[in-house]
């Protein structure tokens, strides 16, 4: 990645980073969970964050999305320093995350789940005096989003009644409602059956064309299939980075994954 901004626009082969982190460090008391991590996420690419358990992937993820405050380091989104911002503000700037445990509004219908995401950009979140019928004008958009993830015919079901894989799909639909510029997915495939995994991987690939996408993932096969840039973390530090071929050929990475590689396939 070039550090000279003047050279970047001319160089079409190296897209500019939408989201950059420099020297990201997080300490919990004496324990350093993340140490001096640099990261660049580019538009239209999938950036996978992998590493053995306890490598600090989720901490990096929470730092990027502002759910945790970094002890040191800087995070820049589209040229704006967001290091000191709160999570809701960065979400409004177009950086949206998902959660490891699928995050839906369980007691609400699928349609309502997606409409909640649409309400804010449409300035329809504060009216306490208006009827729910006023939200019907979001239905078309909401249904298109549900259709995109294959849930349109379940719009009136409650999210609680969905299977795990479908909950994750609903979560993606809700996230896409915000038209994110940066999308961060925390283990989007965890706990899914094989069929759902393939479906979701395809969906993630499609979605990544319109945004910069970061995902934490254990499923190395999928990471190899759809990941463009891969960063391997170990004990809070970057062990290796590059495309899948480079990373998987790295002897240090192979060593770090010894024993756990079999589980991941």
């Amino acid at each position: 990645m070039t550090n000279n901004p003047a050279a970047a626009p001319a160089d079409a082969g190296a897209p500019r980073a939408v989201l950059s982190a420099r020297g990201l460090t997080k300490r919990f008391g004496p324990f350093t969970a993340v140490n001096n991590v640099d990261l660049d996420v580019c538009h239209g690419r999938i950036h996978a964050l992998i590493g053995p358990n306890g490598a600090g992937k989720s901490t990096v993820f929470n730092l990027l999305t502002k759910f945790l405050k970094p002890t040191e380091g800087r995070i820049v989104l589209d040229g704006t320093d967001i290091t000191a911002m709160d999570p809701a503000s960065v979400a409004r700037m177009g950086m949206v995350r998902s959660f490891q445990i699928s995050a839906t509004f369980g007691d609400m219908t699928l349609l309502d789940n997606v409409r909640v995401a649409l309400q804010r950009p449409n300035n329809m979140s504060r009216q306490f005096w208006r009827s729910l019928i006023s939200l019907d004008r979001l239905n078309r958009q909401a249904m298109e989003l549900l259709d995109r993830v294959g849930l349109a015919d379940m719009a009136q079901l409650r999210a609680n009644n969905l299977s795990y894989g479908r909950k994750r799909a609903l979560e993606i639909a809700t996230t896409l409602a915000l038209e994110p510029r940066v999308l961060l997915l925390d283990e989007p495939l965890a706990g899914m059956g094989q069929e759902d995994v393939e479906h979701m991987a395809k969906l993630i690939k499609t979605v990544s064309r319109d945004c910069a996408l970061v995902m934490v993932e254990h499923n190395l096969k999928v990471v190899g299939d759809i990941g463009d840039d891969i960063t391997v973390l170990q004990r809070g530090e970057i062990l290796a980075r590059g495309d899948y071929a480079t990373v998987s050929a790295d002897p240090r990475v192979r060593e770090a994954y010894m024993g756990s590689e079999d589980d991941s396939h």
Partner: peptide, 26 residues
């Protein structure tokens, strides 16, 4: 009316999953 309003929907969302509501920019 408050409960069954656009505002009430956001309250419900907060009750159901607060971190998710934050991540949607609220």
């Amino acid at each position: 009316r408050i409960v069954n309003s656009p505002f009430g929907q956001i309250l419900r969302a907060i009750r159901e999953n607060e971190p998710r509501t934050i991540s949607l920019g609220y």
